[in-house]
Design a protein around this nucleic acid. Structure first.
Length: 487
RNA sequence: GGCCUCAUCGUCUAACGGUUAGGACACAGGAUUCUCAUUCCUGUAAUCGGGGUUCGAUUCCCCGUGAGGCUGCCA
């Protein structure tokens, strides 16, 4: 199947659009088809510089390489590839004009000279009369000769679609099923603006046809304009593609997911440290399910399992809690060495010693099952690279049944135990054995001993386990930290 | 207002018209454990309302109600 993603470069890539793009990409991969990236830049006023680069960056991050269309080349420059180009609408303006002329000639469109002011007034009146605001077709009644005269005089005008009002436009949406719209409820959409630029509706239809797109996957917000597109396809005598409208992503209050109520830019999620595996996994599960109880999917599994039939119709609230859970799951799946390589640069920024740390892999392993986001790593490993100072407040912990009075005694026992281990035999097993031995003769609880050990070594309320930290820290350093408490 | 769409635990969702309405996240409790986290176990929690159709409706139909989208010379 030939699918496409057709964003307009008017700002950041919305997370909902990323999901829509993903669905389109999945369908292309699943069917050994083609996924095209087309840039819909017909609105000059809203164009934002750098938006295309940003969209491309996000898609690349997510692992979605366009098969054709706009994409970065090996050097990172933005290029167009494919036999159906150009893929940037602003480069196709002549094309739209040609097709618009054809509609005009065939009587499927007409010129409209109404000013924005008049239209505004018209709408206000209609609203007052509780009518649907729609173009009243004033200019459709114009005498052809007069139209020619005004055009020749260079009067500003637009081209409108002449909607067949007596028809019913019906089609079968791949997700919503059979849908129909009465022609008289469809507005005479502007096709060509007065500056000669096409609107979305014209450009979209022309391009989907010329690019031979056979499956259009887009957001539910387009459902209402689908009849306009279908009318256009019919007017041109073209076979329309299949449409699959994807339910919207929602705010917790069930309105359309928007800024204000949290992050919606895909780049925000990248910045936060989400893994592409996690974000895409989560996005796929919003509005779609495999029909099994599987929740964790690799991209490959998704390509295999994904079907439009199992996308359901209602909007889905974007639940950050579940995203974070999936994120954690994927963090834990990363091979240990990869995980270490990944966080090392981050840790190094804060603690330069990490750069040449031969024990970095071991340290990284300790935090991998505790971490949710990579940027947390430096803080979680900080106690390895600084000489922190423990406070009595931390060490004397009622919950661990360690009172302030106990501390000197426990510290003494710990020091003795550590000192009893030979420098050359400093392993976790040796430490466990030594602590166990000390424990037996002390009459203390294991928790009392280990809490003090761990707190003294890390100076943190929570951290990886005492034995593991002690082992990696080494005998000398462990002893130093125990002595440093000096209480 | 008009057009279109949607409706199962708080959230994401499952259930050929027949299930004690299932799973996951979150929450609560417990187990493991030196803390935190992980892992494991248990629990609380849902078919929007009213009518039909049917021996039997979460499921099909109708009417409400609620929610959303669209209603631009934006996309």
């Amino acid at each position: 199947m030939r699918t496409r993603f057709a964003p307009s470069p008017t700002g950041f890539l919305h997370i909902g659009n990323l999901r829509t793009a993903f669905f389109a990409w999945l369908m292309a991969r699943k069917t050994n088809g083609s996924f095209a990236l087309r840039i819909e830049d017909t609105d000059r006023a809203r164009e934002v510089t750098g938006a295309v680069e940003s969209i491309l960056r996000v898609l690349a991050w997510a692992g979605m390489k366009p098969d054709e269309g706009v994409m970065p080349d090996d050097a990172g420059n933005i290029v167009e590839k494919g036999s159906h180009g150009p893929y940037i609408q602003s480069k196709r303006f002549d094309l739209y004009r040609t097709y618009a002329d054809q509609l005009l000639k065939d009587g499927h469109a007409y010129r409209c000279f109404c000013t924005p002011e008049r239209l505004d007034e018209m709408r206000k009146k209609q609203e007052k009369l509780r009518q649907a605001p729609m173009y009243d077709r004033t200019c459709l009644e114009l005498d052809p000769a007069e139209v020619e005269k005004r055009v020749a005089a260079g009067e500003k005008h637009v081209l409108r679609l002449k909607v067949p009002r007596e028809e019913t436009i019906a089609y079968e949406d791949k997700i919503y099923g059979p849908l129909s719209f009465k022609g008289h409820t469809v507005d005479d959409q502007v096709l060509l603006k007065s500056d000669g630029f096409p609107t979305y509706h014209l450009a979209n239809v022309v391009d989907d046809h010329l690019m031979e797109i056979d499956l259009v996957i887009r957001g539910e917000e387009w459902l209402s304009s689908t009849p306009k597109h279908l009318i256009l396809f019919k007017a041109f005598g073209w076979r329309p593609p299949q449409y699959a409208h994807v339910p919207l992503l929602l705010n917790p209050d069930r309105s359309k997911l928007s800024k204000r109520q949290g992050d919606v830019a895909a780049e925000d999620f990248i910045k936060k440290g989400y893994l592409p595996e996690a974000l895409m996994n989560f996005l796929a599960l919003l509005g779609w399910n495999p029909g099994t109880e599987q929740e964790l999917f690799t991209i490959t599994e998704l390509i295999e399992s994904f079907t439009l039939e199992r996308i359901h119709k209602s909007g889905a609230v974007f639940d950050l809690k579940k995203l974070d859970w999936i994120q954690g799951q994927w963090m834990r799946k990363i091979p240990a060495q990869d995980f270490a390589d990944r966080i090392r640069p981050l840790v190094t920024v804060k603690y330069p010693d990490a750069a040449n740390d031969s024990k970095f892999l071991q340290k990284a392993a300790l935090i991998q099952e505790r971490i949710t986001f990579f940027p947390e790593a430096p803080d979680m490993l900080g106690f390895f690279y600084t000489e922190p100072t423990a406070t009595m407040e931390l060490i004397a912990n009622p919950k661990q049944k360690v009172t302030e009075a106990d501390v000197p005694k426990i510290l003494g026992i710990l020091k003795t135990a550590v000192e009893s281990i030979d420098e050359k035999k400093w392993t976790k097993d040796a430490i466990v054995t030594a602590i166990d031995a000390a424990l037996a003769s002390s009459g203390l609880k294991k928790g009392q001993l280990l809490w003090v050990l761990r707190a003294s070594l890390t100076c943190r309320a929570y951290s990886p386990g005492a034995y593991e930290v002690a082992e990696i820290l080494g005998r000398e350093k462990a002893l130093l930290r125990l002595k440093k408490i000096g209480i």
